[in-house]
């Protein structure tokens, strides 16, 4: 029995480790590329060891696209967006889950339809809106459009449904105000869900590419993906720099996920799918 168990354990680990290698290897390889000179990435047989060219790549990268400034832009945009959007979507999710009001279902249906629309077709009208108010090339132009993020509202609604109505009723009978209920009672128990939604929103905005590309015009306003993309020129690509930039762009999102992952797992679907 015991032996059997050990065997099981070993095969389980072997399976998981193979999976991890497949998932993570491209990242390792990216790191190898980031610490070697440009052409090295094509060498045959492949070079699997990190080199000592990392600092050089970093310096060139910073000279080229101002990686430090660009990362700052990305962080500012992403964090502001994540904070704003989490609040807005949570409030909406709460309304959809815990109240019945006129227009609830049609509005919710509209939100779901919005998930299905390919974003390319809305680029130009969206661009025209920001041109009209003279907000092209601004951070708020990147931040605002997706604040009401349908998927986040949907997730929050699913999670909020787990809150018993009786609890809210009891609070109302006790005379608690509606905002008091929302901020003091609902939000604290929704912490895992908030973490999950925040991660989704962070991921979306950190990697958001086409819209910032279109709406930001000067290099000092660029976000990370836009700046990285500018490294890919017509006939010249410095692969070392691209890999270094990529490595750097992965770090913050990993840290963010590491910080919130425990909550994330339990909050991702919270009460929702048990219905």
């Amino acid at each position: 029995m015991k032996k059997n168990n050990t065997l099981k354990k070993i095969s389980l680990y072997v399976f998981l480790v193979i999976g991890v290698i497949l998932s993570v290897f491209p990242f390792y390889w990216m790191f190898v590329g980031a610490t070697n000179p440009s052409g090295e990435i094509f060498s045959v047989p492949p070079n699997f060891l990190p080199g000592d060219y990392g600092w050089e790549n970093f310096k060139n990268l910073n000279e080229n696209i101002g990686i430090i400034r660009v990362m700052g832009n990305s962080l500012f945009i992403t964090l502001t967006f994540t904070a704003l959007s989490t609040i807005v979507c949570t409030a909406a999710g709460y309304a959809f889950a815990k109240f019945s009001f006129k227009g609830r279902n049609p509005i919710f249906f509209l939100l779901l339809v919005a998930i299905m629309i390919p974003y390319h077709v809305t680029l130009i009208p969206l661009f025209e809106i920001f041109a009209k108010v003279d907000w092209l090339n601004t951070f708020q132009a990147v931040i605002l459009p997706q604040i009401a993020y349908p998927f986040a509202i949907f997730l929050m609604r699913q999670n909020m449904q787990a809150i018993p109505d009786s609890l809210l009723e009891a609070a109302r009978v006790d005379g608690a105000g509606e905002f008091h209920i929302f901020f003091r009672m609902v939000l604290p128990v929704m912490r895992p869900a908030l973490a999950a939604v925040a991660i989704f929103l962070f991921m979306f905005q950190w990697n958001n590419f086409i819209w910032p590309l279109v709406v930001l015009q000067s290099q000092d306003m660029y976000t990370l993906p836009v700046a990285l993309s500018s490294l890919v020129g017509m006939s010249r690509i410095d692969y070392g720099q691209v890999m270094m930039g990529t490595t750097l762009s992965t770090l913050p999102i990993m840290i963010f996920f590491l910080l919130l992952q425990r909550q994330f797992i339990s909050g991702i679907l919270g009460g929702s799918v048990k219905e």
Binding site: S230, G233, M234
Partner: peptide, 10 residues
């Protein structure tokens, strides 16, 4: 402004 080649067209 130094922009990616294909990005210029977008």
């Amino acid at each position: 402004e130094d922009i990616g080649r294909l990005d210029v067209y977008e």
